[in-house]
Simulated assay, not measured.
Amino acid sequence: MKAEDWYGCVGKFMLAFGDIEHTTVGLLGCLPSCNIPKSAPKLTLGARIDMLLEVLPRYPEPEFREVLRCLEAVAKHSGTRNLVAHNTVWFDVAKVGDRIEISSHLVSTRDRKKRLKLAEMKRLADDVHELARQLSEAAVEVMKRYVPDVE
């Protein structure tokens, strides 16, 4: 087991959250009849998600419902995003009988009980990547409908 085993899934996970960040900024800029401050894109992802979760229920259209569903799911992964973004992979070495076993986990430096196994990280990367895709597609539908024409 090597640190390199983690690179692909951690990269996929973080790039998916980058897509989500970009999408939330775009959404904040195009909501109809909603006075969202121009400084909103400078807010943290969590604050932007909270703002959108507060504002979106006003809109009954299906594309808003889908964006809302996706953001609710994203919010559930925010803690994991912080764990992945701010920590590293640790290797544990243990003697089991006559054997030495090496395992790796992504571990919080603040709370060693918060950890992810490689299999969990791969599943999360796939889940968040799919969620980012769904959010982006739903946001495009919102933007198509509500972004003003440029003259």
Score class of each variant (00 low, 15 high):
1 M>D: 03
2 K>T: 12
7 Y>T: 12
7 Y>Q: 05
13 F>N: 03
14 M>C: 12
15 L>G: 00
22 H>R: 15
23 T>P: 06
25 V>S: 09
25 V>P: 02
26 G>V: 04
31 L>K: 13
32 P>Y: 00
32 P>G: 01
35 N>F: 04
37 P>Y: 00
43 L>A: 15
43 L>Y: 14
47 A>L: 09
49 I>E: 02
51 M>R: 07
52 L>H: 05
53 L>I: 03
55 V>Y: 06
57 P>H: 07
57 P>M: 08
59 Y>V: 02
61 E>F: 03
62 P>R: 05
64 F>N: 00
64 F>E: 00
65 R>V: 08
67 V>S: 04
68 L>Y: 12
68 L>S: 09
69 R>D: 07
75 A>R: 15
78 S>Y: 14
79 G>D: 12
80 T>Q: 09
82 N>E: 10
82 N>Y: 08
87 N>T: 07
88 T>F: 14
95 K>F: 11
95 K>V: 15
99 R>D: 09
100 I>A: 07
101 E>F: 14
102 I>T: 13
106 L>P: 14
110 R>Y: 12
110 R>E: 14
110 R>S: 15
112 R>A: 14
112 R>S: 13
114 K>S: 10
115 R>Y: 08
117 K>Y: 10
120 E>F: 00
123 R>K: 15
125 A>V: 10
127 D>F: 04
127 D>Q: 15
129 H>E: 08
130 E>Q: 11
131 L>Y: 03
133 R>D: 00
134 Q>V: 04
135 L>W: 05
136 S>N: 11
136 S>E: 05
138 A>Q: 08
140 V>R: 14
148 P>Y: 03
